[in-house]
Design a protein around this nucleic acid. Structure first.
Lengths: 342, 342
DNA sequence: CTGAAAGCGCTTACAG
DNA sequence: CTGAAAGCGCTTACAG
């Protein structure tokens, strides 16, 4: 079942079928109609492999994510795939599983099948992998800031700024000893930026940060959040709030606090990032920084498809930095039921 | 950068490069070594599009799922992708978003790019879509049973049997008015099979089932679970247990019970299916039927790759039915803290 | 507006 | 063991 069968059926050359399929306005309407009829009758679907091999646009975008077990990535994948589909694009979801080599291969387009663009959420990349990077095909980095070059974009919320919002909310609620859960080394990783905003806001608020209040988390999942907080409590550390670098860590923190008899939010407030659906069902429900996913998805796709994003973009020296809005979704984990506070 | 560049570099014909890449044992070891050297130096990655077009194996499997927002599917996708990668296969994750047409296209291979096999978790398929189905390429149906034909496989847990396990557990705990949440019409859908097992076990236990205890859920998510249970409570319905057709519904049920002041598990026990990671963090933690995901993944891949699954398979009249083990993970939502009952 | 030719990168027979 | 040819389905120039 190929373009030739359709051509034979419609009584035209296969080139004409190609023109109809690609909606090129060079075919006489009645001919086009006849061709479309033949396509329907035969149930013909154009074989993209032919196009792909020929070169030119594949209408496919690779989406490279560390994992899908974190619902944030799963939901992101679903929304990007849906939005891309509406624009006539196919998304190929690739899992890096935190393998630097895999991420690097996608970064430089060393892959077995061609794509028009790559949207990559880095996890294991080293800064050196990004130095002097300039892509033949659009490359959109999510989450990690990058001193990027030609054709390289960066789409994310203002991580440091959102951390400031979290600290302000906690300070407004009377908290004075916040623990940061999910600290990361490095300059530009998500964890490092959230921590930097946290530190700055604490300093502004006159909070002195005991180094033991800054805790790393090897993996940003529920079990690690629970273990790190349990360890902090068992170690006798005093704190009245937890700023968790993502909601999964925050949900783990809630479990540890519950198991150790610490009342949330009365004794300890908890706030996370991502605003996962399950966070609204946590007990107590988890306050969280909610990225504007719709804006994030459309900015990433605009950049990937070569449409310069207009609203809210900030073009840096060499890189295209797109900052997506966020808001703090306040829930029961950071505000007492009786309180009427924002 | 193509096979020809590598051939030139290594001083052999490109056919020889192809033989090395495909590990055909017809190349002299020293020649192969030289070719591999050239491949590394040039950073050559074989272009799969050439292979795909040529016909023969693509080493790619399409995984068609309704969505990724349900963590069960997200985790399944991740595990299938990981396991397939270890076997040298690529997985292409496609979202049907509950669109019958999309599911049907994949069912009959009417897609833009060829794959070696399709693993499909149906959501919107009608029974008539499956009648007389026989696939040119292996087709693995997950979740829905199917009266299938040549090259069509079915991999799932024993849905009815697992529902019996749930009811037995509840009856052992002294429950006598269980509500079923997530009832479905039809003969062979997941919801229908779980409901059938539920009904049978209740009858065996001498429990009379008021029809109002059988509740539908249009979508199997948290919000719907919450809404349906809230409605049941508001309607004055009496029940002492909820059998939720999946964990998301169960988590929604827990929220509704909490909001209505019903103690879990003392007044109402709750059990779900899927054993999501978040279920262990629910409050109280949610009891659930845990499918053996490792067995499910490897059975699905075996079938997709044309390896006849051996362990635990049951070959039906025309169809290949593979039944995967499950177990009931008992947690706080169905057993009082003090109780030592299984 | 339509037709005939060339070529994308690869693999599969077929010769040597 | 290695080489030269054909062809997978499509699109891109190039003629008519």
């Amino acid at each position: 079942m190929s373009i030739k069968d359709v051509a034979a059926r419609a009584g035209v050359s296969w080139k004409t079928v190609s023109n109809v399929v690609n909606e090129r306005p060079v075919v006489r309407p009645e001919t086009a109609e006849r061709v479309r009829g033949a396509i329907d009758e035969l149930g013909y679907v154009p074989n993209h492999v032919g196009r792909d091999l020929r070169g030119g646009s594949t209408r496919t975008i690779a989406l490279v994510l560390p994992e899908l077990a974190n619902p944030y990535f799963a939901i992101l994948a679903e929304r990007i795939q849906k939005a891309a589909g509406e624009r006539g694009y196919t998304v190929s979801v690739e899992l890096s599983l935190g393998d630097r080599e895999v991420e690097r291969d996608h970064l430089v387009g060393r892959t077995a099948r061609p794509v028009d663009a790559v949207i990559l959420s880095p996890m294991a990349l080293e800064p050196s992998d990004l130095v002097g990077l300039s892509a033949a095909t659009p490359l959109v980095l999510l989450g990690e800031a990058v001193p990027a070059g030609e054709n390289v974009f960066h789409v994310a919320i203002d991580n440091a700024g959102s951390a400031v919002d979290v600290v302000r909310h906690l300070v407004d609620g009377g908290r004075s000893r916040p623990l940061f859960l999910g600290a990361e080394e490095g300059q530009r990783s998500t964890g490092a930026e959230r921590l930097a905003g946290f530190r700055a806001a604490c300093r502004y608020a006159g909070i002195e940060l005991d180094p033991s209040l800054i805790r790393r988390a090897d993996v940003w999942d529920r079990a690690t959040g629970r273990a790190v907080v349990a360890e902090a409590i068992d170690g006798g550390l005093a704190f009245d709030a937890i700023v968790a670098a993502n909601d999964l860590l925050g949900i783990g923190a809630l479990a540890a606090l519950r198991e150790h008899g610490r009342a949330v939010p009365d004794e300890v407030a908890v706030v996370g990032w991502d605003d996962l659906p399950e966070s609204a069902y946590a007990v107590p429900s988890l306050s969280s920084i909610a990225p504007d996913l719709e804006a994030l998805v459309s900015a990433a796709l605009d950049a990937a498809m070569g449409v310069m994003p207009t609203a809210g973009d900030r073009v840096g020296v060499a890189a295209h930095e797109i900052v997506v809005p966020h808001r703090l979704q306040v829930r029961g984990s950071s505000v007492s039921a009786g309180s009427a506070r924002r």
